[in-house]
Design a protein around this nucleic acid. Sequence first.
DNA 1: AGCCGAGTATGACTGAAGTCATATAGCCAC
DNA 2: GTGGCTATATGACTTCAGTCATACTCGGCT
Lengths: 198, 198
Amino acid sequence: MDMIIPEEMVLEFGGKLIQYKKNTAIFDQGSQALHYYQVKSGEVKMVNYSPDGQEFIQGFFQAGQSFGEPPIFADFPYPASAICCQDSSVFKLTRDHFFDLLSKHFEIHKKFNELLSRRLQYKGMILNEISSHPPEHRILTLLTFLKSSFSPDAEFEIPYTRQQIADMTGLRVETVIRSVRKMEQSGELAIKNHKITI
Amino acid sequence: MDMIIPEEMVLEFGGKLIQYKKNTAIFDQGSQALHYYQVKSGEVKMVNYSPDGQEFIQGFFQAGQSFGEPPIFADFPYPASAICCQDSSVFKLTRDHFFDLLSKHFEIHKKFNELLSRRLQYKGMILNEISSHPPEHRILTLLTFLKSSFSPDAEFEIPYTRQQIADMTGLRVETVIRSVRKMEQSGELAIKNHKITI
DNA sequence: AGCCGAGTATGACTGAAGTCATATAGCCAC
DNA sequence: GTGGCTATATGACTTCAGTCATACTCGGCT
């Protein structure tokens, strides 16, 4: 989980560091994409809200990660909103300065290719799970993927609540809770004082 | 829907044109990504199969479109299989030659950024739909998106069967058929001798 | 210690999409 | 024109996750 663009470089190209309070929006679904964003500290989620208030979380972003670039690269309105899960500080760079940076740093440009590809992998995986697999399978696939990207070898404590897991897999909290309990019984994962470990 | 890499350029960098019969696989889920592929004629789908034989279609690719690049960019095994829907001819370029081409043609490299971004847009949209919206809404969103990318203004005849729509939205044929009929009755779309138009 | 709120847990009931069976329509080959 | 295949269509029944209600657990705060 290293930095996609080094902080000095972001600043060199005119990036500003902005502070956001927990639960505030950085941008809203439907608005124009005018800036590049990169998390310095805290946590941000990209999320869709359905009319009845139900959330779908497209992804979480922590220190060093960028978010909201696809609308810049391909010029379409934000398909989801960016909300801070915690008090966060975020680098903000205008679209033009971002492209300027890319044109001068081929290795960074290439990194974005890789980054977008990995996101496609994630979305494709979840899509396949949601479309054709039962809850336990969905959840286990997500958890295994998280483990493999954070800590492939050591035991891994899932840093998300049941509600967040539900919002990432298109399930309800109750279903996640029930599925997780069942998988604990069958030994597919462990629960240590309410935290899921795997 | 233009060509992502001009044919002459593909050939110049050592690309070979390969013929595939309808329903044959170009590569299988789980195998290593060693080549870049670009459709010259015919149609290819990227698809996941669940144990019980249920299909999920990640995308369709026609003349001029490339497929299967994310595993090359980010180095992971194919997360789905590429199957020809029709007799097809496909350009095939080794991974190394593909990267060579990219390094020498910045404008092409940039195009891939854009391409990956648009695919993320599509997958994010479908993901949101599948996770939190009822069948009619899911289908209509997909159809509207297809229309907007193929023929935003003129009336558009959907080039897919009910089964294919089902496999793209995580629904069953019967559900798609029922939903489409219902939407015809409510005037949200039209059916002209079994073809959906919008 | 006691309170509060967020997160986890569990049961009873419901309903919408899936499943299965069967029918019909259109199209191509011979 | 007939036969066979693929796609569309429709009804009856079932099932699994969603909904709703309610309770419990834990950690932080005063």
